[in-house]
Nucleic acid binder design. Structure first.
Lengths: 141, 141
DNA sequence: CGAAATAAAGACAAAGAAATCCTTTTTATT
DNA sequence: AATAAAAAGGATTTCTTTGTCTTTATTTCG
C-alpha cells in the first residue's frame, strides 16, 4: 500500500508540522530517535522531499528540516505521490495497459469507487490540517 | 497495492472462471500465452493457490488448472488475502504497532473509510460473479 | 580562523520480490 | 510398457527496496 520510505517520511513530516514552525528545526538524528526510525534511510527520504520542495532544510548548527507555511498547505495526497508515485491513485490494479472505462478490467469499477474515497480523504486534507488534528488529540505518531 | 504475483494469479483465476468449467482445464503454458504472463512465475502462483484450495489441478495429459463450483463461490477478497495477506485490509498504513481506535494515527479514520469501500466491493463479489460479468461484457482480462 | 553540527551525496550491503531453469512426479494415451 | 503432457518442487538469478557507512559541503559559533 505505502512503501516504508513513504511511511517514514509521512510520519516525520506530520511530526514536524505538528511540533515545529519555520524557526524550529529538526535534525535527522532527533527525528529518527523520536519516531524510532532507521536514521540513514529516513535521511534519504527527507533529502528527497527537500529536493522536491515539500520540506525545507538548513545545514550547520541549529540547522535541520522544517516546513514553511506554504509547504504546510500541500495535501496529504501530494505528499504520498511525491514519494510513491501515482500508483495508489492511478493505473489498472491488475496491470492491464489498456484498461479504461471503455474496456475496463473486471475490478475497474470497484477500484474507481475505492479511489474516489481515497481522493476525497487524502486530496482534501492538507499537511497543516492533519497536524492541527494531531496537536489537539491523543493521536500517536 | 497488489503484488505482481497477485495480479497474475487473479487474472488467471478470473479467466479460467469465465472461460472454463470443471471439465475444461487450462495448462500454465496456455494461460501464460493467452494472458501474456511470465510462465514459470505464474506457475508458482497457481501452485500456491492450488495448495491453499482456491483452485484445483490435475497432472498429466488433458490436465491443468480449473475451478470447481465451490471454489467459484470464494470472494475476490479471499483470493487477494490468500496471496498478498491481510495488509490491504488490516493494519496501520503508517506502520504504527499500537494504532487503533483509541490511539489512532493521523490517517486512521481516512484509511478506515477507504477500507470499508474495499471490503464492500471485494468482500461482496464472488469469483463467479466477476466471471459472469466478464462473460457478458467487453471487459479485458 | 578552527571546531563542531548539520544536510547532501555516493558507494555499498542485506533482504525480499520477481523471474528463470532444471528435475521429479503423476497420469493419460498409444 | 513406452511416451508424452502436464503439475510440483527446488535451485538459482536478477531486480528493487531497504538499510548502512563514509565522505563532502555548508553553516554557526567561539
Amino acid at each position: 500500500m505505502l512503501s516504508h520510505k513513504a511511511r517514514y517520511a509521512i510520519r516525520a513530516v506530520l511530526y514536524m508540522a505538528a511540533e515545529g514552525d519555520e524557526s524550529k528545526h529538526f535534525s535527522v538524528d532527533r527525528l529518527a530517535e523520536t519516531l524510532e526510525l532507521p536514521r540513514a534511510f529516513l535521511a534519504k527520504a527527507l533529502q528527497e522531499l527537500a529536493r522536491k520542495g515539500f520540506i525545507s532544510s538548513l545545514k550547520g548548527p541549529n540547522g535541520g528540516f522544517y516546513l514553511t507555511r506554504v509547504q504546510r498547505r500541500r495535501t496529504f495526497k501530494e505528499l504520498i505521490v511525491a514519494i510513491d508515485g501515482e500508483s495508489l491513485f492511478e493505473g489498472c490494479m491488475l496491470g492491464l495497459p489498456e484498461c479504461d472505462t471503455s474496456q475496463p478490467c473486471p475490478i475497474h469499477a470497484s477500484v474507481a469507487v475505492m479511489r474516489q474515497s481515497l481522493e476525497y480523504q487524502f486530496g482534501l486534507h492538507t499537511i497543516e490540517a492533519l497536524a492541527q488534528t494531531l496537536r489537539h488529540s491523543s493521536m500517536r505518531i
